[in-house]
Simulated scan of single mutants.
Amino acid sequence: MATDGHGGLIQPRKVPNPVRESQSHRELHRELLFSHSRGILPRHRAELPRVLESRRLRQLREELQGPPSDLEQQLRKCHQRLEEAAAGPDPGPRPEFLLVRDSLRKMKLAEPGAWQT
């Protein structure tokens, strides 16, 4: 029996870290080291290059995904309608009973002691 100087005990192995072994983590770490060594830190760049890069990345993602499905098209239409409705002006004059109700609410909030008996 040959001993390795540890009394014949089996030495435990270090448990692998799945985050550090992932390809995306290694690429990100390599990119950060490269940008740090060149002095190009993401937070210190001007706003315009950051915006242009984010647009370029978004366009690349959309091109890789292919044409949008019917569901995605319907969701985009609904989203656009909601944005237009939120940004658009009032459709017309409000009925008088709504105006009176709003003014009563304001009076109740403005004078809380006046309504108590």
Rank of each mutant, 00 (worst) to 15 (best):
H44M: 03
H44Q: 06
K77R: 12
E53F: 03
D102T: 05
W115R: 04
L60T: 05
P67T: 03
R105N: 09
V100Q: 11
R56H: 09
G113F: 08
R50Y: 00
R13E: 15
Q116M: 09
P91T: 14
S103E: 10
L109V: 01
R30I: 04
L32Y: 07
M1K: 00
D70N: 11
S54T: 08
G66R: 04
H25D: 03
W115I: 04
T117A: 08
E31I: 11
L99G: 04
Q80G: 01
A85T: 11
S69M: 08
E72K: 13
I40E: 08
G7P: 03
E96A: 13
D70F: 05
Q65G: 11
R20K: 15
P89G: 10
R43N: 02
A114S: 04
A86V: 14
T3K: 01
E53C: 02
R45D: 00
R81C: 12
A114P: 00
Q59M: 11
P49A: 01
S54H: 06
S103T: 07
L98E: 15
P12V: 05
P93L: 10
D90I: 02
H29R: 14
P68W: 08
G5A: 01
P16V: 10
E63P: 00
K106D: 01
D4K: 02
E63S: 07
P95V: 05
W115G: 05
Q23E: 15
V100I: 13
I10E: 12
A110M: 07
E83S: 14
A2H: 06
Q23R: 15
P112S: 07
E47K: 03
L28K: 13
L99S: 06
Q23T: 13
G113S: 09
L41M: 04
V51K: 07
R50W: 00
P93Y: 05
L64K: 10
F97R: 14
K77T: 13
R20M: 12
G113I: 00
L82Q: 15
E96N: 08
E47R: 02
R13D: 12
E31H: 11
I10N: 05
N17T: 05
R56A: 08
H29L: 15
H29I: 06
D90W: 05
Q23L: 14
L75R: 15
Q11C: 00
P95C: 05
I10H: 07
P67N: 05
P12I: 03
L64M: 10
E72Y: 09
E84G: 06
Q80T: 14
S24N: 09
S103N: 03
K106L: 12
R61P: 01
A114C: 00
A86L: 14
L48I: 02
R50S: 01
K108E: 10
R105M: 10
R45G: 00
F97Y: 13
L52A: 06
R38D: 07
H44V: 00
H79N: 14
L98Q: 12
P42L: 02
L104Q: 09
L109I: 00
R45Q: 11
